[in-house]
Simulated assay, not measured.
Amino acid sequence: MSTSSKPVAPLTPLQLPEPRIERVRNALVVPVQKGGRLPNGVFRSNGTFCEHSRTLLSQNRFTDIPDRPDRRGVMRISGRHVFGGVMRDHFGHFLLESLGRLWVFDHLDDPVDGVLFSPRRSGERLARFNPKYESLFDAMADEAAPLMINAPVVVEELLLPSPGFGHQGWITGTPQFRAAVQPRLATAFPAKGGPDIYLSRTRLAGVEKAVDKEQRIERLMARAGYEIFHPQDHDISTQIAQYRAARRVVGPDGSALHLAAWAVRPNAKVAVIQRRHREKTVQSFVNQFEAFGVADVRLLNPLVAKNQQGMKEAGEPAPLYFRLLSRQLQENGFL
């Protein structure tokens, strides 16, 4: 693993960079600024920008390089800190964009004083770390304090890890990230819960989050002995404990599967039900499960083809063939 401060190649959404940890003395950390794609990041003391402080957003977009402020008058922070990047409140984006550098805690010889994050929206003077995420963050960051900055700061010593996980082409994670996250979750969250679960979306607000005919799907799965599990109704500790206990997991594509892929046992059976016509995004869930060691992952596509859907109201979920889904679940060993 590289620890050099030499310049690196520009990040690409197609492939994760080689893992490296750059130690930046007197680093100028700039929080999210207004305009563009969440411009933020780290400048070295010589004024050069640290490419690995950029974050991969959805749709293969990177955060923009911010304007470099004058160091004069900028608040200074003493001690050693880790650069965490952009802090997202949305659960899926939190997993994909805010935790990808925490693999560094498996490679530290000395303690750190905190992890520096910039809130998603610029100017959030009272931004706080979402308490719902504390148990997961603590497990991955050795209980180091997450520190939210809303103005530029100069940090005495900043550890800048390369990103190790993220959207699309980054979904498989680096070996270092995978080696860090799975043992930590296993230690922090003992398995507890039913053996067969269906991850439901029926209680999520917003028609764009809905799954066609999902109440019928719930009844089908319940008759087969599955627990209908609503992830958002449980704290993260309970979610991870349930995923670790499950032997069969079935659910539509969505944020809950990103966390499940970190936690389920390698011998579990997983069925990802495609609920929308976003093939690359849906395939990325399968790729993540496989990369994190789950050998038996099935992608089930019961959707009506786009050219056969006819007219439907804007925002309505993509229609699916219920009987086809039932047959797919049976043929793949989930019913």
Rank of each mutant, 00 (worst) to 15 (best):
S255V: 05
D113Y: 12
R80T: 13
S118A: 14
Q308F: 15
E279R: 10
D138A: 13
H90T: 13
V294M: 14
Y243S: 08
Q330E: 15
L204M: 06
R44W: 10
G100P: 07
P119N: 03
S284R: 02
P195G: 15
H93A: 07
A314M: 12
L320I: 03
N267K: 15
A314G: 14
D235I: 01
F62S: 04
K306M: 12
M140Y: 09
W103D: 02
E214A: 06
Q59D: 15
R223N: 13
S200E: 02
Q288Y: 01
L102E: 02
N26F: 04
A141C: 07
R178T: 00
D142E: 15
F177S: 02
R203D: 02
R88T: 05
A261P: 13
P161H: 08
F62H: 05
A186M: 11
L257H: 08
G169P: 06
S58L: 13
R323I: 14
P183T: 13
S4E: 13
P39T: 01
R178P: 06
R265Q: 14
T238F: 00
N307F: 13
E157D: 12
S5T: 14
N332Q: 11
G84P: 02
A263K: 06
V181Y: 03
L95N: 04
D64M: 05
G114R: 13
L320V: 01
K6A: 15
A191Y: 10
N46K: 00
R184F: 10
R223D: 14
Q274E: 11
L99C: 08
S45I: 00
T63R: 03
V86A: 04
V32I: 09
R203T: 09
E227F: 11
A261R: 05
K132W: 09
A27Q: 01
R72P: 00
N332I: 10
G85P: 03
S58T: 15
A186W: 10
P163E: 05
G251L: 00
A246F: 11
R203Q: 07
H258C: 09
A144P: 03
Q168N: 09
L38D: 05
P111K: 15
R121E: 13
G251R: 01
G251I: 04
A241D: 02
K192I: 03
A9S: 13
Q232N: 14
T3G: 12
S5W: 09
N301R: 06
Q215H: 15
R276I: 03
